[in-house]
Design a protein around this nucleic acid. Sequence first.
RNA 1: GUGGGCGUAGCUCAGUCGGUUAGAGCACCAGGUUGUGGUCCUGGGGGUCGGGGGUUCGAAUCCCCUCGCCCACCCCA
Length: 425
Amino acid sequence: MAQKLQPPRGTRDFYPEELRVRSWLFAHFRAVADGFGFEEVDAPVVEHEELFTRKAGEEIVEQLYHFELHGRRLALRPEMTPSIARMVMARAGSLPLPARWFALTQNWRYERMTRGRRREHYQWNMDVWGEPRITAEAELIGAIFALLDRLGVPRDAVRMRLSSRALLEETLRAGVLARRPEAFAPLCVVIDKLDKIGADAVVDLLTDPQGKVQLARPDAQQVVDWLGLRDLETAAEGLAADAAPRAQLAELFDWLDAYGVADRVEFDTSIVRGLAYYTGTVFEAFDTARNLRAICGGGRYDRLLQTLGGPALPAVGFGFGDVVILELLQDLGSLPELPRELDAVVFAFGDAERPAAIRLAAQLRGAGERVELVLANAKLKRVLADASRSGALRVYLVGPDEVTHGEALVRDLASGEQSRHPLPV
RNA sequence: GUGGGCGUAGCUCAGUCGGUUAGAGCACCAGGUUGUGGUCCUGGGGGUCGGGGGUUCGAAUCCCCUCGCCCACCCCA
C-alpha cells in the first residue's frame, strides 16, 4: 500500500467496527462520571506551548507535538490537566467548589511506539477542584473501580498501587533533602523510573553531577531503599505520629473500605509518577499479571494552579487511557461483540413507490428508529440479503400493490413472518 | 537508536534451488428469468509480488538501497 495512504505512525483510523468498541468504552466512561455527579468539559486540542512546558525534565514535555505559526508557539495537548487548570483558573472566583469535572480527550505525544503506547490516544480524565480532604481521592478511586466493574474486568485482574509524595517529601526533608527542598520535583521524575531502569540506574541519575538532583551516593541509596518499603508504618517511621501525610493515608484506606475496594489497593512507596506537579497522593492501576503498562494513574496537585499564576486551589485527578484497557479486555476475552444496530430497512421497488417509502422512513425515524433507506432500485433478493447482513430487524417493502392498498409489507428478518404497516399519507 | 522477523488480491496466506498470461480460501460484484434473505451452484472484477536500483536472455524469487509493520532490547509515561 502506498505510504501516503497510511495514517502517520502511532495514529489510528477507526473503521465502524473499531469505532463501535471505542464508543462502547466511552459510554462506560461517561456513565460512571455521570453516576458520580461529574460534569463534562472540553478544551482545544491545540494550546499555547507554554501551558505545558515545565522544567523538571519530564518526558511528557520533551515529547510535545509543537509548531510555530505567525510567531505563536503552539502544541497539541499531551494531557488534559493543564487545559482544565486553565479553565478553572479563569473562573476561580465564581466556581462553586468543589468542582467535579471530567473530560474525554484525544492527547498527543511524540514518542517511540511500543505495546500500549501510541502517539495519539484518548483519555478519560476526572478531576476534583477545591477539595483538600482525601475524601476526594477516595471518590476518584471509587470511580475507577466502578468503571472496571462495569467493563466486566474480573475483580482480581487489576490492582491499584498508591503512595504519597507528601509522605516522601517530608521524609526526605527530614533527611537527605534537608537543605535542598527544590530538588524534590526532579527527584520524583527520576525515581519514577525505578521500575523501568532498576535501582542502580536510578542511583546513578540521582548522583549525576550534571543532573538536577545531585545527591551524595549514600543518600541516593537511602532513597532507593525507602522506595522498597511496602508498609505504611515502616515508611512513615521517620515522621511524627501525627504527621499529616501518614494520617491521611490511613484515613484514605478507611474510606476505600467503605467503597468496598480497600482490598484492591495497596500501599507502595515506589509509586511517585513522572509528572512534576503532583504534591500528595499518587496512584496507578496495573493488570495483576503485569503484562501491560499502567492502566490509569493520577494524584493530587495542590499547587498546580499557583504554578500557572492562579490562586491556591487544591485538586486531585486521574487520567485513564483507551489503549491499555482495551488491550487488557482483549487479553481477558472480555470485549463484547458489538454488531451494527439497525432497526429497519425501507425499500421502494421503483421510483413510482419511492415517495411513499421516503415518507415511511421519515415516520419511522421520527419515532426514533434507526432506518436505512435503500437508495438504488435494487432487486428484492439483494435488498433482503443486505438487510440481513446489516443486522436490521425488519424490512419494509413498498411495491405497487402496497401503495395501492396503502400498506407496506413488513418482514421480520429473524422469524420470516410478514405483517402490514399503514403507509403515511 | 540496536538486533531479529516480515512485507504477494480488501483479509489470511501459498508460490521463491530465476523460466509461459502470479495462485487459493474468505470477502466483494454479477447471474441461477415473474416480488422474498442467511445455504448452494456458476461466472467475474481486482495485484506496478511495499518502493527504487542492479545482476540476467528472463526476477515475486538473487544482490544493494529505501520505506513500512511486528518482536526483543534501549529509552520512557
